[in-house]
Simulated scan of single mutants.
Amino acid sequence: MTILKVTPEAEASGLTAEIYDADRRSLGHVPSHTKAMSLNPEAYLAWESLTQAISTSLGLRWYELVTLAAAQAIGSTHCRLAHGKKTLTIIPEEHLCAIAIDFHDADLPEAEVAMMDYAVKLSTDAAAMDDGDAQRLRDVGFSDREIADITMAAAARNFFSRALLALNVELDVPEGMSEQLKKALLAPLPPYSAAERT
């Protein structure tokens, strides 16, 4: 549990109160990660604005798939669980479980597998990336704008996930999540690299 003294809900005011209220409206509660990151409410709102701009441009399905791949590569259980719950609105649970365990063997289109491989590499070895990585995305049909959006979605996830891990923020398990999906979302990255699959 983080050593940071977060603002209790009953004491929240100004921007922090607005952030808490938004989560209560959309989620029914205020998650631990919101409380920790809204210690700087201006930065938190900037983060929300950034991710909204990226997801609107990229599309919700691709944004969530990139997010899940990046979070798994980072080892972020916070973001895997939170975004797994969000992804249930667009992908059936059985398919989402397969994606979460190993997206290479989940009957996804080649382009989506390539996109998720890219997010994994960015999250584990960005310094080793070169034009070939972006070219693979172009070869499977992504536009330059989409490649930029995929990159920004994965990089943004690295920012948020790594901050939560560094601050040892308490893990929230979304209400109503099945044990099967929870187990799948908490599965580690398969023991082979993206490069070995391409």
Score class of each variant (00 low, 15 high):
I3Q: 13
L4G: 02
K5I: 12
P8S: 07
E18A: 14
I19E: 11
A22Q: 06
H29P: 01
S32R: 14
T34V: 15
A36Q: 05
M37T: 13
L39R: 15
E42Y: 11
E42I: 12
Y44M: 14
A46G: 11
E48T: 14
L50D: 09
T51P: 08
Q52R: 14
A53D: 13
T56Y: 09
S57C: 07
R61P: 01
L65K: 08
T67L: 10
S76G: 10
H78P: 13
C79Y: 02
R80P: 12
G84S: 04
K85I: 03
D102C: 01
D102I: 13
H104Q: 12
D107F: 05
L108M: 09
P109I: 07
V113K: 13
A114L: 04
D117S: 09
D117V: 03
Y118E: 04
A119C: 06
L122R: 02
A126W: 04
A126G: 00
A128F: 02
A128V: 00
D130P: 07
D133P: 08
A134I: 05
Q135G: 05
L137D: 00
D139P: 00
V140Q: 03
G141W: 00
R145S: 07
R145I: 01
R145V: 08
I147A: 02
I147H: 00
A154I: 00
F159C: 11
L164I: 07
L165I: 14
S178H: 06
L181Y: 03
K183T: 14
A184K: 05
P188E: 01
L189P: 01
S193V: 03
A194R: 02
